[in-house]
Design a protein around this nucleic acid. Structure first.
Lengths: 127, 127, 127, 127
DNA sequence: GTGGTCTAGACCACT
DNA sequence: GTGGTCTAGACCACC
């Protein structure tokens, strides 16, 4: 379910975080539901346990999951429509847009990009 | 002319790169024109020379500036509408948008953000 | 009678211990009286037998209950006003208060908290 | 400045967190000021770098410090009167008090404890 | 020099 | 079995 790009400059634990959030937002994992164990996940993704653990520590701090010793990791009730995740996403997007604008990217180009991204998304939804 | 935010998590050399590109795109520096020397700039910004040097090495690799041994750094003819800068900006923006979307940000929210950013930009242009 | 919060980060066996002590202090179970068997309790609470067993082993070590081979678990005579339980509680509270104070919590805030907790308690007593 | 109790059941990184917060609240470290490097601290406390790092990751997530690659760790502007730290402290205290009460600790005993703790604090202030 | 990421592996606590 | 903590040590990025 989770795909890691080892070549990416985005840290692996960030990639895990992002994809877990995505899976929760897509409804693959629902609040209260148990997630795969960090050991199972680290084995599946061929990563060190600590790398996966790091992702889950941050997901827990962000209120997306909670972990119970000896029992496992579960999706928290506040996972969907999570304010911290939302606000972070908006802030990052703002920085990225400002950076693009200062490099000469026009509003038209951004709209074209958005159209192609959201068109792509609709296709996925049909599946 | 260049403002560095020491508290930002964006590397200082990236901030320098970005602002030089911005100044060129705004027409403050024109192709062929000489830029402040690395030493002058590092003194003015109170930064380590190596940090400024790194920014200029990368700007040269991107085709934004060229340096002439013993004479200084100049804005290259390919600085405006530079393909590499443009493509990098688009690629980064695409990643940021996809990340935001996967965290539940809607098209409407992105448009609202864009409107506020471009409104802000117009105000600046009047100055 | 015993309510377990599976979502709490307090270990389940600690929750069992705490609630047995509470029930004894409230007079629900009196010294000499027999407690529900470990198996019955684990079935009722839908918990692993080992988890309940661990709670009772520790309660026995603390002098709150005693178990008779093949007959069951009973409230010990030293259960109420038990020194070890009392001292542990005081020690834990001291640690918690010191921790709060070092994080900038004032005496006033603590008093407000205490008032609301003891007010709540009185209401419960009326039931 | 920081004292670690290796015997304590409180994780070392939590002890570091707590003491850094305390030092900031006491005014030993002020907003904007640089903290000792994680390497220097780990050497001084004879701990692994990662243990200290873990403490700082959480302090950063809580808005108490911020770290800049290649530069160091600094006290953030939101460190004092930090809502997250404050709310966590209150919540923990509430849990501790409720636990003590259920073990038969009376309001009088709690007040006695508070008096002795705050009396102790005043003595420290005079130094 | 600074912090940031990742691995390998140990040991403990809880169910 | 689960997660939680800690160590030792490597390699990278930034200043």
């Amino acid at each position: 379910m989770i795909i890691i790009d080892l070549q990416s400059r985005i840290p692996i634990y960030e990639q895990i975080k992002e994809q877990v959030i995505k899976l929760v937002n897509c409804g693959v994992y629902k609040p209260g539901e148990q997630l795969p164990s960090i050991r199972a996940l680290s084995k599946e993704l061929k990563l060190n346990v600590n790398t996966v653990k790091r992702a889950f520590i941050e997901l827990e701090a962000d209120g997306v999951v909670y972990s119970l010793q000896g029992r496992g990791v579960f999706v928290s009730e506040t996972a969907i429509n999570n304010t911290k995740v939302h606000d972070d996403a908006i802030r990052n997007l703002e920085i990225a847009v400002n950076s693009a604008v200062s490099k000469g990217i026009s509003r038209e180009e951004i709209d074209t990009l958005l159209n192609s991204i959201f068109k792509e998304g609709e296709k996925d939804d049909r599946n």
